[in-house]
Design a protein around this nucleic acid. Structure first.
Length: 430
RNA sequence: GUGGAUGUAGCUCAGCUGGUAGAGUAUCGGUUUGUGACACCGAUGGUCGCGGGUUCAAGCCCCGUCAUCCACCCCA
């Protein structure tokens, strides 16, 4: 017999979790829709070549590949892969459907797969909630992404979060000013850890990687005040003027749009992969799950598929990490069931009446359940309803039937009253 | 991909220096037939993650493997 165990890094989402998830997804969708983002879904898997060469070496290693069917598969050849994020599939869609009107704003809430080693808030299958604006190279679009992310986090009940903002061109200028333009990636990976391991730690790591101490010293001169855009821009010099001006404009628009907790951070890297302009990253303070969202401008990605340069910017919220923190902090509503009432069955001879009552309530739009065990034994039926978290139980016995009423019992308090049948649906709706 | 810790009923855990498994809880049934949350009785449920090895004997020791968690790496 096979072992009944789910695959590594995956989870079964039981009803109690699903109710909480659907609630959260509903809130996020609502926020996205308020900005005019339209829904989109794409297939779980893509052609392998669609995903290759988009995420950088580290990312590419984590792509789940799908073996070819038939002979090629037996030799280990892959031609398809599970999607790694929602951005590259979007770029593919834009390149493929030339008739999509610009600007195109879409949101997408779907799972992605990464062959990572699982940890707290880190899974191999997880949902991302993306909102992207394609077809306009505007600082307002960048700012809208920050605003929608901020609105989303606020809507879920978070207040202690920060959305860090930086610019890839500014990062490049910073590294160049330090005299390490030829090893940009390594420097970025190191300074990205600044808030975690401090100046000492980053200096040590750069030293270990063989960087000259003069380079490290110049880097700290430029990053003396990493949260101060003006100071960093001034220290870098002329090369920082363009991206710094862009960031100032993004910050101004974001503030006007009501985005909260947006802060410039010169050490935010995210420089690897397809980003070309502004980059963002959202973190919950003391959440213990790393970043809960990220994004940025990727003006070259669509062009990789069609040759047609199409500017784009987007942001992604990580549903699983948000849920981990929300669960821990009691921010999720405890929805055990959506069922409003259990229709009890008094006895076999009254089944037609009871089942008919259930049908009547369902037709009225109520979520009701009929008792599926043996009829009779009302106590058992009440206990079942209460343990399921169903708020009401309705009883249709000979007396009620004769009088044209239904007994409605509130399980939590035990109180019971008789309600005329034509008022029952309204009474249960409460 | 690297290193570390853990793995006993659905859940939370006990199990002495190795002697062929237990509690609480949950589930189901009962305590006689129009009313539950308490109490009492009973039942289901484990090849001790899985596979090898050592031993007369392994849940306890050894190896491998899978999974979970932690630190890296990276990221949502």
């Amino acid at each position: 017999m096979p072992v009944a165990q789910n695959a590594r890094g995956t989870r079964d989402l039981l009803p109690a979790q699903m109710h909480a998830r659907l609630h959260v997804i509903g809130l996020v969708r609502e926020v996205f829709a308020r900005y005019g983002f339209e829904p989109l879904e794409t297939p779980a898997f893509e052609r392998l070549e669609t995903l290759m060469g988009k995420y950088g070496d580290e990312g590419e290693k984590l792509i789940f590949r799908i073996l070819e069917r038939g002979e090629g598969g037996r030799e280990g050849k892959a031609d398809l892969a599970l999607r790694y994020d929602l951005t590259v599939p979007l770029a593919r869609v834009i390149a493929q459907h030339a008739d999509i009107a610009m600007p195109f704003k879409r949101y997408q809430v779907q799972p992605v797969w990464r062959a990572d080693r699982p940890q707290r808030g880190r899974f191999r299958e997880f949902y991302q909630c993306d909102a992207d604006i394609v077809g306009v190279d505007s600082r307002v679009a960048d700012a809208e992404c920050l605003a929608v992310a901020s609105d989303g986090l606020s809507r879920l009940g978070f207040t202690n979060y920060t959305i860090k903002l930086n610019h890839r061109a500014l990062l490049r200028a910073i590294v160049a000013a330090a005299g390490a333009a030829d090893r940009e990636g390594e420097v970025l990976v190191a300074i990205d850890k600044l808030d975690k391991i401090g100046v000492e730690g980053v200096s040590e790591e750069l030293g270990r990687r063989g960087f000259d101490s003069a380079v490290v010293a110049r880097l700290w001169e430029v990053l003396a005040a990493p949260a101060d855009l003006a100071a960093v821009a001034a220290a870098v010099g002329e090369a920082a003027a363009g991206p710094a001006a862009e960031l100032r404009e993004v910050l101004a628009h974001a503030a006007a749009l009501g985005a909260r907790n947006v802060a410039f951070d010169a050490t935010l890297a995210r420089g690897l992969g397809y980003y070309t302009g502004a980059v963002f990253e959202a973190v919950i303070h003391d959440g213990g799950v790393g970043s809960v969202g990220g994004g940025g401008r990727y003006d070259g990605l669509v062009g990789m598929f069609s040759g047609r340069q199409v500017p784009a910017v987007g942001v992604s919220l990580g549903l699983e990490r948000l849920l981990v923190v929300m669960e821990e902090r009691g921010m999720l509503p405890g929805i055990g069931t959506r069922t409003r009432a259990l229709v009890t069955r008094f006895g076999a001879e009254l089944d037609a009446a009871s089942l008919g009552l259930a049908a009547e309530l369902r037709a009225a739009g109520l979520e009701v359940e009929a008792w599926l065990g043996a009829p009779g034994k009302l106590g058992k039926q009440f206990q079942y309803a209460d343990s399921r978290g169903i708020p009401y139980a309705v009883v249709l016995g000979p007396d009620e039937l004769a009088e044209g009423v239904v007994a409605v019992k509130t399980l939590a308090t035990g109180e019971q009253r008789r309600v005329p049948r034509d008022q029952l649906a309204e009474a249960l709706r409460g």
